[in-house]
Design a protein around this nucleic acid. Structure first.
Length: 488
DNA sequence: TGAAATGTTGGGGCG
DNA sequence: ACGCCCCAACATTTC
């Protein structure tokens, strides 16, 4: 047997496909190029969390990553391939070790665009190239490379609409999927691989039961949601802001980990949506927001924790761990805010509309730095994505590109009445208010004692009093803003 | 991808 | 029939 394998090794070159955030075999440019090269393929993944610094994946993302890797490994197995997994302090250590074990002709990967990844990959490219290995990287994670989209003066767009229009003048890539079968004698079977469990991505205490019920973190789960999104696309504009419905696609984690590619998403929506109206541009608009965020972070890499608008460096936040913690735990006394924060905690996800309401509440009413909110979302979201997270929080903080001015303060009561009129969302996540009539639930502190009693709620015991009044919070935020503005 | 305050208008009730 | 007031509905501006 050994001689047979050796013969195979000798008769064919070997290449590595380094999987990172492109955990799919469909529309994967790096994978396609490797297949086309005719080499034997070593599918490879290295787990190097310490290299990710302060933006290493949180527990919820890790939970997703575990299942995505398991699923990718299963898909590869059906092609006769084994996903080689390695724990390593750094990716470069893992890759140089691997290329010492096996004679490798080439390595393929899809680019990540965060500053840290770019730096890491540049170094790896240099090192491996010097070892005589052909290094080829591809764009599989965005529709366009960030350098492709510039305004007339050659600089990056800072406003969404012109950015989007500019994208639409270009050819949007079509997905390409290549099926493949590797011979059983390929060398990858001999490689040492750490078990997926050794990555320790799953929670030690089993808090993930709701996650398991809510998500199918696999390629087929993503495909199912994509199909559903297309089927319900004509209702998208009506339902996308109603958090009690399944009006959004919920594809963000699949896009983050690359189980669904943006090109596939785009192509499927464009070719399969029967209604050729605003419904499809509505969904695709979100995909271009993702694109816009990634491009912004690429061009302004410091914005992951510093405001894009420099003058906001000195904004007078009122950092207070007690307030922050109450927000994190869903104990603010504002049902719509608390429902969102609890949904996030239980499912690793929050509806987009509620993300805006909760984050506005933290930044405006509570005057907490947006970076604190960004960190909490990062730690708890399964779709945590540095670019999207950064862009979202800077937008709400009024300090980012295309940002809502600081004085746009969401009214959590109005938002609640407008987007959760039946209170179905609130009641799902705040069971202690389940008997409260929908009309009253948006501001329980305004309820009469008799109404509270009838609903079996004792305010301050069963459900908290509001940690700040709306008018008070709004005024505080606007005062801070005007004071800050006059100090510039 | 606000909200609240302020301004304008027009229809209907009513003296 | 007329003018006056009220106020809802909408538009504009201000924060």
């Amino acid at each position: 047997m050994w001689s047979l394998k050796k013969l195979a090794v000798m008769s064919k070159d070997t290449c590595i496909v380094w999987f990172r955030r492109d955990l799919r075999l469909h529309d994967n440019p790096a994978w396609n190029a490797a297949v086309k090269s005719g080499c034997e393929i070593i599918p490879f993944y290295t787990h190097s969390p310490s290299e990710e610094g302060k933006w290493r994946h949180g527990a919820a993302s890790n939970w997703w990553l575990h299942h995505a890797l398991q699923d990718l490994s299963n898909q590869l197995a059906s092609y006769g391939l084994t996903l080689t997994l390695r724990n390593s302090d750094t990716a470069i250590a893992a890759l140089t070790a691997l290329t010492k074990e096996v004679t490798v002709k080439a390595i393929y990967w899809n680019r990540c665009y965060e500053e840290q990844s770019v730096k890491r990959d540049t170094l790896i490219k240099e090192t491996l190239s010097n070892d005589g290995i052909s290094v080829r990287s591809f764009n599989g994670n965005l529709l366009f490379d960030p350098l492709e989209i510039t305004n007339k003066s050659g600089s990056p767009y800072k406003v969404f609409t012109p950015f989007w229009k500019s994208c639409l003048t270009l050819v949007i890539p079509r997905p390409e999927t290549i099926t493949f079968q590797q011979t059983e004698t390929s060398p990858h079977n001999c490689l040492e691989s750490d078990g997926l469990d050794s990555f320790a991505l799953l929670p030690k205490i089993p808090w993930d039961s709701e996650m398991n019920a809510f998500w199918q973190p696999t390629r087929s789960g993503g495909k199912k949601l994509l199909k559903q999104a297309i089927a319900k696309s004509s209702d998208y504009q009506d339902l996308r802001d109603i958090p009690s419905t399944d009006g959004t696609s919920r594809l963000s984690p699949y896009l983050h980990f690359g189980q669904i590619s943006p090109a596939e998403f785009h192509h499927e929506v464009l070719t399969r949506c029967t209604a050729k109206d605003h419904a499809q541009t509505g969904i695709l608009r979100q995909l271009f927001w993702r694109e816009f965020s990634a491009h912004l972070l690429y061009h302004f890499p410091h914005t992951h924790d510093q405001p894009l608008r420099n003058e906001y460096q000195n904004f007078p936040w009122n950092f207070d761990t007690d307030l922050l913690e109450k927000w994190q735990r869903g104990q603010t006394g504002y049902p719509i805010v608390d429902a969102g924060m609890r949904q996030l905690w239980k499912t690793g996800w929050m509806h987009n509309r509620v993300r805006m309401v909760t984050s506005s509440f933290l930044v405006k009413h509570l005057l907490q730095p947006w970076q604190e909110g960004a960190h909490w979302f990062w730690d708890t979201l399964v779709d945590a994505d540095l670019a999207n997270n950064t862009q979202g929080w800077q937008w709400i903080g009024g300090c980012g590109a295309d940002a809502s001015p600081y004085f746009r303060v969401f009214n959590p009561i109005l938002q609640s009445k407008k987007f959760d009129p039946t209170a179905a969302y609130i009641k799902k996540w705040i069971p202690e208010l389940s008997e409260v009539p929908a009309k009253l639930i948006h501001a329980p502190w305004e309820m009469e004692p008799l109404e509270l009693a009838a609903a079996g709620v004792k305010l301050g015991t069963d459900y908290p009093e509001p940690i700040i009044g709306h008018q008070e919070g709004r005024k505080q935020a606007l005062d801070a803003y005007s004071k800050f503005k006059s100090s510039l």
